[in-house]
Design a protein around this nucleic acid. Structure first.
Length: 331
DNA sequence: ATTTAGACCTGTCAGC
DNA sequence: TGCTGACAGGTCTAAA
């Protein structure tokens, strides 16, 4: 779900709230979320660690952990499609008696589940109320029931990793193996290293559609379906153009468009159209500023030429674009 | 060597 | 109402 702007926004929120907090305990409700480690190991590695720094690289959230000042562990969090982080104030209850096997049981869908409403489903399944509401304003109860990992801080606050589809991953690495943890990521689009020359170089060998290539994290780290569509719209480049066919001018426009579209996304607090939430459950405003993504259909007029935005599946993902502004043929 | 189905998962929505 | 199929912010793997 989240792309670079959503991860960056969350990183900034975390930096402002949980820096120097100490992890007291950890509860794992879905073991695959923590990758190859088992829950007891994960727990014992983290207990007593303090959050020294919060960073971002591509779509990865990075948390430096240590017992004193020196970083010992790197925690990488990738939210994939539906992962969200919530910071709960002290006073919220959470059913930590829930064990992995119980969680696995109520996380399994039976044939009777499918056609009932969400609430009914949960009730029928005997889903325990994981988090009891205190002074909730933003928190979505449905999303809170998808808690996969819970970090208890010594000051009573809790950080939840919620993830309906269970694609998200949290990994622990020795601090000195950061490069390995992040191997395969291309240039950071909001840094000086993302130049036209770099972009030109990585596109020159790629014959596939530019839309598909932009989703390759080795080309640029952090673009996903929303912001790739937005960047191509802004640069007036058709998503099916072979990546290595772009002119010098188009490459410059594309680089600038990627940067400005991502910066705007951060500015507006990320894009929410269903699942994405901020640390306190607040929604991002960027959805109201999108110019191509999700703007297909009759009433969706191109803000530039008045034509109709259309959509087409490219490389297994839906691309949204204006066929009038984004020409496939060069003329 | 690249592309591309399939897998991993649950929830929602349009439509019959 | 009951049910089916398609689709969703991502990325890895194996097969073509």
């Amino acid at each position: 779900m989240p792309e670079l702007p959503e991860v960056e926004f969350t990183a900034r929120q975390l930096r402002a709230t949980v820096l120097n907090a100490t992890i007291q305990d950890v509860h794992v409700f879905w073991e695959r979320t923590i990758g190859t480690l088992d829950a007891p190991t994960f727990r014992s590695l983290l207990a007593g660690q303090s959050l020294l720094e919060v960073r971002r690289r591509g779509k990865y959230l990075l948390i430096d952990l240590g017992h004193a000042r020196a970083p010992e562990l790197l925690m990488t969090i990738h939210r994939r499609m539906t992962g969200n982080l919530y910071l709960l104030p002290p006073g919220w209850e959470i059913d930590t008696s829930l064990r992995l096997e119980d969680a696995a049981a109520w996380n399994t869908r039976g044939p009777d589940f499918r056609y009932a409403s969400f609430a009914q489903k949960r009730e029928q399944a005997g889903v325990p109320v994981l988090v009891r509401e205190a002074e909730a304003m933003y928190y979505d109860p449905a999303d809170l029931s998808h808690c996969r990992v819970c970090f208890d801080f010594a000051d009573g606050r809790r950080l939840l990793f919620n993830d309906a589809r269970k694609f998200g991953r949290i990994e622990l690495w020795p601090a000195e193996r950061e490069a390995e943890a992040l191997s395969g990521l291309g240039p950071e689009p909001l840094s000086d290293e993302f130049t036209v020359e770099v972009l030109t170089g990585s596109l020159s060998t790629r014959k596939g559609p530019i839309k598909a290539v932009l989703l390759d994290q080795q080309v640029v780290a952090g673009l996903g379906n929303i912001y790739a569509d937005e960047a191509l719209f802004l640069a007036r480049i058709h998503p099916l153009r072979p990546a290595n066919s772009l002119t010098e001018e188009e490459l410059m426009r594309l680089r600038d468009s990627i940067v400005s579209v991502l910066a705007a996304g951060i500015e507006y607090g990320g894009t929410t159209f269903s699942g994405y939430r901020g640390l306190s459950g607040e929604q991002g405003e960027n959805y109201n500023h999108l110019k191509a993504y999700h703007r297909t259909g009759e009433s969706k007029i191109c803000i530039r030429c008045g034509g109709l935005i259309t959509s087409q599946v490219i490389a297994q993902r839906t691309a949204h674009f204006c066929p009038r502004c984004q020409r496939l043929t060069s003329e």
